[in-house]
């Protein structure tokens, strides 16, 4: 992009070396904690605690992962999170399109008023207590819907989607469809949706990552442990340090468990992050595009 130089001068060569050095520093400082966690998750806990393990695994053990997959709460949490992510993303994308498409139409009377109603919620909200009361009043407390419905629509995503429709759906297409007697629902389904692959991908990704990674709503809306998403189980184990192993019999066993505790935490971090980290390089360009469309508007 900026490599217009025909031949590097001495200063340029020094510049290039410094530049690579800086970038390598960035790379190392971002990557190191990730590699460390990965290595610690399969290293003997003693080697981790006494500093023997500092980059690559030492005395490889799979005990941590075994403990993770034998813990019923973690497994249930993982399954619940999968459900919340898939169902929540679907509901969110549908709602977003249903709001964004009509609001992208120039001929919609009252468009500005409705748009203002949406935008205003980005500036001001009732706060967590009145929202909690509303969720309670609508009977969602301690149901799976509590994690899907109250946060179903992101106004920010809706605006991005609306901008996309305004830019990519030509007026002529609508006029031609209207001449053919096509209704608005038909036009949305037959013409708009097939042209909207990229923006649907952006939406699905934004919603899915947000849903997979959040814990707070589950914390205040759910009390039934069988409904807990993975992040809430993670919070108990990683942050509050509550791990229920079975009965602890003797002292050596307890020592072993104490070691296992940290090992399990490292393994759990890997297991919880891997689904998103594996998928994201393949969809990275969609994320970048989403940020771009967003900045176009801002």
């Amino acid at each position: 992009m900026a490599s217009h130089a025909t031949r590097d001068t001495g200063v340029d060569r020094a510049f290039n070396i410094t530049n690579y050095l800086i970038l390598f520093l960035f790379l190392a400082s971002v990557a190191y904690p990730l590699i460390y966690v990965l290595s610690a998750s399969i290293s003997s806990p003693q080697a981790v605690i006494n500093g023997e393990m500092w980059l690559w695994p030492v005395d490889i053990t799979w005990e941590g992962y075994r403990a993770v997959f034998n813990n019923p709460r973690i497994v249930t949490g993982f399954q619940n999170s999968l459900f919340y992510t898939v169902a929540g993303t679907f509901v969110s994308v549908v709602l977003t399109i249903l709001a964004a498409y009509p609001l992208s139409r120039k001929d919609l009377a009252g468009k500005n008023v409705i748009m203002f109603l949406f935008l205003f919620t980005m500036l001001f909200g009732g706060g967590i207590i009145p929202t909690y009361l509303t969720v309670r009043e609508t009977g969602l407390l301690d149901t799976r819907l509590a994690l899907i419905i109250p946060t179903a629509l992101s106004v920010w995503n809706m605006i991005i989607t609306r901008t996309f429709f305004q830019v990519t759906i030509p007026d002529e297409l609508l006029e031609a469809a209207q001449l053919d007697g096509s209704s608005d629902f038909r036009f949305l389904w037959d013409n708009v949706i097939p042209l909207s692959g990229p923006i649907i991908a952006v939406n699905a990704l934004f919603y899915a990552v947000a849903q997979w990674n959040t814990y707070f709503n589950a914390l205040i809306y759910l009390t039934d442990q069988d409904l807990f998403p993975l992040q809430l189980v993670l919070r108990e184990i990683l942050v509050q340090n509550q791990i229920n192993f079975d009965q602890m019999t003797d002292v050596t066993e307890m020592m072993r468990r104490q070691d296992l505790r940290d090992l399990l935490k490292y393994s759990l971090i890997v297991v919880a992050s891997v689904p998103v980290l594996i998928i994201y390089p393949f969809v990275q360009k969609h994320f970048v595009r989403g940020v771009m469309i967003g900045s176009l508007k801002g």
Binding site: L34, W212, Q231, L234, K265, S273
Partner: peptide, 19 residues
Amino acid sequence: VSYAPHFISVVVIVGMLFL
């Protein structure tokens, strides 16, 4: 690599920090 941490959940980030 530098985008990756953006996709890690806040609970996991704090869990790593604690460790």
